[in-house]
Design a protein around this nucleic acid. Sequence first.
DNA 1: CGATTAAATGTTAGCGCTAACATTTTGTAG
DNA 2: CTACAAAATGTTAGCGCTAACATTTAATCG
Lengths: 344, 344
Amino acid sequence: MTDQPSTERRRRKGLDSPTLSDVAREAGVSSITVSRALNAPDSVRANTRKKIEAAIDKVGYVRNMVAGSLASASSRFIPVIVPSLSNVVFVEVIQGLQATFEQHGYQILLGNTDYSMKREEELIRTFLGWSPTALVTTGLRHQESLSNLLARYQRPLVEIMELGDAIDMNVGMSHYRAGHCMADHLVSRGYRRILYAGTQMEGNYRTRQRYEGHRERLLQSGLDAPLMEWRTPSHFDLGATALDAALHEYPNIEAIHFTDDVMASGALLHATKRGLKIPEDIAIAGFTGLPFGQALTPRLTTVVSPREAIGRLAATQIITRLEGQQPQQHSIDVGFELIVGESS
Amino acid sequence: MTDQPSTERRRRKGLDSPTLSDVAREAGVSSITVSRALNAPDSVRANTRKKIEAAIDKVGYVRNMVAGSLASASSRFIPVIVPSLSNVVFVEVIQGLQATFEQHGYQILLGNTDYSMKREEELIRTFLGWSPTALVTTGLRHQESLSNLLARYQRPLVEIMELGDAIDMNVGMSHYRAGHCMADHLVSRGYRRILYAGTQMEGNYRTRQRYEGHRERLLQSGLDAPLMEWRTPSHFDLGATALDAALHEYPNIEAIHFTDDVMASGALLHATKRGLKIPEDIAIAGFTGLPFGQALTPRLTTVVSPREAIGRLAATQIITRLEGQQPQQHSIDVGFELIVGESS
DNA sequence: CGATTAAATGTTAGCGCTAACATTTTGTAG
DNA sequence: CTACAAAATGTTAGCGCTAACATTTAATCG
């Protein structure tokens, strides 16, 4: 008769840690007021806010973001999908994104596709379960089912790295034009037998877009546009291997336009070691504008794009939209710059 | 009389997306069974599972991870705190962590401290609000208040990169011994006037631990252990600057032991450009074992540690514990390897 | 083949927070 | 000092899922 068994029937493990109501009780207000003090401090009187802050300290309150996200159906998470972390380019883009998002209280959920569109879709589907505030993914090409999904997505979405028909917003550059620009440089330097060489052109199709631009420019001058491709990831040693292979396959080649600075630098260093004169015996060009390419002698000719800026701009586009405004433009061309070193 | 206004009083925005119960209704089971089919497929009969899977497809169910995390008080998030993303070392460690965690369905929450212990504490406190499953942070030194917090943390915790008294578990190497090892190499090569040079030794105190080891070895042989330090982040150009400054300050110097391969490579390239012979005029050594250091001529002498393995091992330690077992050892020494190039 | 046990499924009650609406307090003008 | 609007705070009811216990169904055995 003394107990009330039915009342006590179930008990959840309930982390003993204090909750909003503990803080509220301590501060002598209701829990929604504490919630407001945390989420919109200006909507609470300074005096009340002070009491709440004291109560938070006193009880050692740690905010439960999960509960908040469930109640508000939004999580302050922003998934960022990149194809690789081995390529510095994406790391720098991420840094730009992170720096900007952090200032606004958003947290990146990093997803790595390894250049697989299937993986991209899986990752995005999983991340959607976290009620993300917005979405950032790499490239404009996706599996059809993912494109459909994204087209219906109601929150800000930025596709980065390239330019074109974006689902929502877009920050990037034209890889076609970058390839065209480098080819133009090489042709105008007087090189005629120019090889395009690199790796992973299936998965990283932007590499191939640069080749298309390159090819177009060579054809304009009535030149052939030979191509050599490797399947393994880009690496310094592969640059060396590629140079040997290229000289074997095309003994008269005058210039090699590599898909990236890593291979180009590897080739450049290897050429020097082989006693080849650069650019007299062979000219070398890269893409990306990595610091070590510019530290070499001769300096590597390359095309550089503002990688961290891509991240910052993408984040800014999203923040603008989240603040209820429309960004100036839905598509931002960050452009690129030709860096002419002594390697060409 | 037809309406029931009181029943309809409030309505939450309720994302129209289907929930577990929608799936359950469709499959003709209860929602907990659907939950089990997702979380522990083996606990549901194959037949039932099939019906549920069909229902999921039919209604287009997307799992709400937030609700699940709240109900279970655990989120499958594992925060990873690193001091920098500009240093490839940490990127590779993250790749190792991610690869392993992904296989087990855990998601990294990436935090970047910029070598600030204050920032580290802020990040961890925020991440704790996400009910993380475990925690990974860099280094053994933290703000006192954070150390106290972590000491009370009830879930797996790995401190990476260095060796010593860990709060819970530990994966790393001895930076002291690495510095000692390189100094030993240089001394045994016959160099006597050896400079230690590098950057950011306050924040990245592991750099200084290597100096301590270096210094100890030189003192053993009765040699001086001069030190030059810059405040700016490591960079190829800084390596060049450092070389000039070192030769100006210590005209007779025979060898320079740099804090990292980036500066060492920058110095090496700059020395070659200046017409200095390596290692005859000046020997150069680095730390990290980055690919481009090994692509140079002469190859850079350096110390390499298994960076991705650190990540994989740290993740494995955590997984082991989450599976209810005790890992073989709480502290794992991944060691390091001296790579002797032609630069020393 | 009924008794016993194990496996599968169901019922109920929250997890800790915030949206939506309700009420009280404060500020301001006449 | 009242009337009214605006600002601050409160009440209530979930968000969508899973822990804990309850019940049903299938499997095993003498």
